[in-house]
Design a protein around this nucleic acid. Structure first.
Lengths: 329, 329
DNA sequence: TTGAAAGCGCTACCAA
DNA sequence: TTGGTAGCGCTTTCAA
């Protein structure tokens, strides 16, 4: 591929002048500019950004690590953050950790080698190894979805405890009093622990009761279905069910219907996330809306700020939520 | 940030030797290796991939351009292709064109500057400007979702005509004979044109009839709903409806229900894409499954092959589909 | 087994 | 308004 050198030779000027033309700098005679431009077109010159990046010590690259692409949260989040990053004239280097904790760490290292300017990490957990890897990163890391502020890692999180608390309130208000919770795995502080904790608090606070159970499974409709089938047998008195995600809730409603109970009547059901799935299913799912695209944008802004100013204005940003009232509760 | 030079000074050897240690090359005395390793740990050296890339003239970067992230097709596709690219030891540079035709072209250029090794382009259209931009790309471009093989652009497409044809057959077989089509915009050859063309062919072939109408709108549930509300008024005899996407079909079913007709009984409805939404809605949506993750993988494989061998083994790859039978038809 | 030096393609400083 | 030159951080050849 043609380089500056060739263009210079072809147009009979020096590399410096060609460089000036390419970068639209002042102080180049119009006629030379033209001459150079012609040579550029002629040999199809394309500036080599790698060489530039090395020289300028700046890559305009933002690393983004996600656990998987096909989830409401990450897809919407990516849409949000990519628009902010693009507006800042930077690019997204994307890595899919496929829920593998070791890969997450591996990517943080690889991104540092690539000299990204910062890293956005969609986290589903936060263990010692991950914290250490983040600490060792030479470039700033912003966490999305889990709270790392205790370790001094800037984090954008959703108000999971608040959602849990409100879930309890809504379920009680709808007349339920035997309330269970289906979460995910206990490593996921935000989704499993915080949401359950909020539920427990509101149940205690309002009625001095506890949750019937805290079941755990995957993030899928199928998992919600299977768990609920069993739970219905174990807890016949169940009349309120809070599910950590909408998909789980939809699976749960299916199991409830199959057991000849009516979701939203015999058993109130609540999900989290405002997945479009909840809008089209029957009965439609009452849930909580998290503005995933907005949290994507915010996290990008926080990171860009961190890159710019070398220090954090915010250490934790808790996104609010919205109650979505539909048929299931 | 510490460089090779510092490590060399710190360990009292030359840069060459440090480089050898870093790259695990043979012919370094164990004791020197150790010495160097200690120095590396000491000053927290992280190899600069930008400099390497420049020297080696190789970036291991694959550019991926998508119209938007939060769509079933792209999210699943990204999951598929990223796993293949990762396995090949390469990285994904992601760009979100936000359905903007000019941005697509802009990104192709920017990716060339970044010296990506190849580009994967999720296309929703294919006009002259885009073809020209692809032709001008110094690195191979693989098209996903639209057929560019006429312009000699390697393409991974879904069998849209085949789906349309089968849709006609299924609708007729279910007893419908007044059949309409809701597409998107006419620029989208694959989704709008081909699917309609297939439908037309099967209707002609089986019964020598034509489609009642070819309506057009957006890719959304709402758009399907609004269009169908009007179409029901215009075509009271309608008893079969083929929708270019599942979302449109779901909106259509809502409008049908509201008009006191039963989707799947009074009016048979068929979508395309096997979106999970179709599984949870009532009545559940009969549709066609496209293996989006697989087409993502395939396209990555084709591109890697193209990069490796500098020439295309396949110029067009048509992915098959699967009939999904549910309640709506 | 190690080191010196050239050079990847560019920018930017200084001199002309 | 232009050109020469140094150097970004690395790999690799050649010589020692």
């Amino acid at each position: 591929m043609a380089g500056l050198h060739e263009v210079a030779k072809l147009s009979g000027v020096s590399k410096s002048t060609v460089s000036r033309v390419i970068n639209n700098e002042y102080g180049v005679k119009a006629s030379t500019k033209e001459k150079v431009q012609k040579a550029i077109d002629e040999c199809g010159y394309v500036a080599n950004q790698v060489a530039r990046d090395l020289k300028l010590q700046k890559t305009n690259l933002i690393g983004v690590i996600v656990p998987r692409m096909s989830s409401n949260a990450t897809a919407k989040g990516l849409d949000g953050l990519s628009s902010v990053i693009e507006l800042a004239g930077k690019h997204v280097l994307l890595a899919n950790s496929q829920q593998d904790n070791e890969k997450e760490i591996e990517y943080i290292k690889r991104f540092n080698q690539k000299r990204v300017e910062g890293i956005l990490l969609y986290a589903t957990h936060l263990d010692e190894a991950l914290v250490k890897a983040i600490k060792q990163s030479a470039v700033p890391v912003v966490l999305i979805g889990q709270d790392g502020s205790l370790f001094n890692i800037p984090s954008i999180i959703h108000d999971d405890v608040g959602v849990g608390f409100n879930a309890g309130l809504r379920l009680l208000e709808a007349g339920a009093s035997n309330i269970g919770f289906i979460g995910v795995n206990s490593q996921d502080i935000a989704v499993d622990q915080c949401r359950f904790q909020g539920l427990t608090q509101s149940l205690q606070h309002s009625r001095q009761i506890s949750a019937l159970f805290h079941s755990r499974g995957e993030f899928t409709i199928e998992s919600g279905y299977q768990q609920t089938k069993q739970l219905l047998l174990d807890w016949p008195q169940l009349d309120g069910l809070f599910c950590a995600t909408d998909r789980i809730a939809i699976g749960a409603m299916k199991a409830i219907s199959e057991a000849n109970k009516i979701p939203g009547k015999d058993i109130k059901v609540l999900g989290v996330g405002n997945d479009e799935l909840g809008l089209v299913c029957t009965p439609s799912l009452s849930t909580f809306n998290y503005a995933f695209d907005l949290s994507g944008k915010k996290s990008a802004q926080v990171l860009l700020d961190l890159i710019e100013n070398k220090q954090a204005d915010v250490s934790k940003l808790v996104m609010s939520f919205e109650n979505i009232f539909r048929q299931s509760c």
